[in-house]
Amino acid sequence: HFTSQQLQELEATFQRNRYPDMSTREEIAVWTNLTEARVRVWFKNRRAKWR
């Protein structure tokens, strides 16, 4: 589960860029205190939901 702060950060990034690269995902991981893998999976799932 994600905190509302984490989701806000993830959503804001998603609005700007639906396909963040590795370095962007790592930055998000640092800001949100999540692993890069969790961030990558979140984006994958979010893109699926967005379609």
Rank of each mutant, 00 (worst) to 15 (best):
R51M: 10
R46D: 02
V41L: 14
T32D: 01
F14A: 01
R25I: 14
W42Y: 03
E26T: 12
R51H: 10
R46A: 06
T3K: 04
E26F: 10
M22Y: 14
S4V: 13
W50H: 08
K44D: 07
N45L: 13
H1V: 10
Y19H: 07
T35D: 09
L7Q: 08
A48I: 09
T35Y: 03
E11K: 03
I28M: 03
R40S: 06
T32Y: 08
V30M: 13
R38S: 13
Q8P: 01
N45H: 13
E11C: 08
T13I: 15
R51W: 10
T24I: 08
Y19C: 13
R47S: 02
Y19K: 04
A12E: 11
R18V: 05
R47F: 05
L10M: 05
L34C: 06
R47T: 03
L10N: 00
A12H: 09
W50S: 09
R18H: 13
E9I: 15
A48W: 07
W31M: 15
T32R: 01
R25S: 01
V41R: 14
H1K: 12
A37M: 13
E9T: 15
R47M: 05
R38Y: 10
R40P: 00
I28Q: 01
Y19P: 00
L10C: 03
N45T: 09
M22R: 15
H1W: 13
Q8I: 12
N33P: 01
T35S: 10
Q6S: 04
I28C: 02
F2W: 06
S23A: 14
N33H: 09
E11F: 04
L34W: 05
V39I: 08
A48E: 11
K49Q: 12
F14I: 02
A37V: 12
Q8G: 08
E36H: 04
Q15F: 07
A37S: 11
L10G: 00
N33L: 06
Q5G: 09
K49G: 07
P20E: 02
L10S: 00
K49E: 13
R51C: 11
R25C: 04
D21W: 03
F14E: 03
R51F: 12
A12D: 09
F43L: 02
L34H: 03
V41E: 15
E27N: 10
V39S: 00
T24E: 14
R18C: 11
W31L: 15
T35W: 05
W42N: 00
R38A: 15
T3I: 04
R46E: 07
A29E: 01
H1P: 12
S4C: 15
E27Y: 09
E27F: 11
F14S: 01
A48P: 01
A37D: 11
H1T: 10
N17P: 00
Q15W: 08
H1L: 11
A48M: 09
T35Q: 04
M22F: 14
A29Y: 03
D21M: 05
F43C: 01
V39R: 00
I28W: 02
E11Y: 04
N45Q: 13
E9M: 15
S23I: 11
R40E: 07
R25T: 04
Q5E: 12
R47L: 08
W50F: 10
E11R: 03
L34M: 09
E36F: 05
R25L: 11
N33D: 09
P20W: 04
N33Y: 06
I28T: 02
L10E: 00
Q15G: 07
K44P: 01
R40Y: 07
Q5C: 13
E11H: 02
N45K: 13
L7D: 05
N17V: 08
R46Q: 06
R18D: 02
N17G: 05
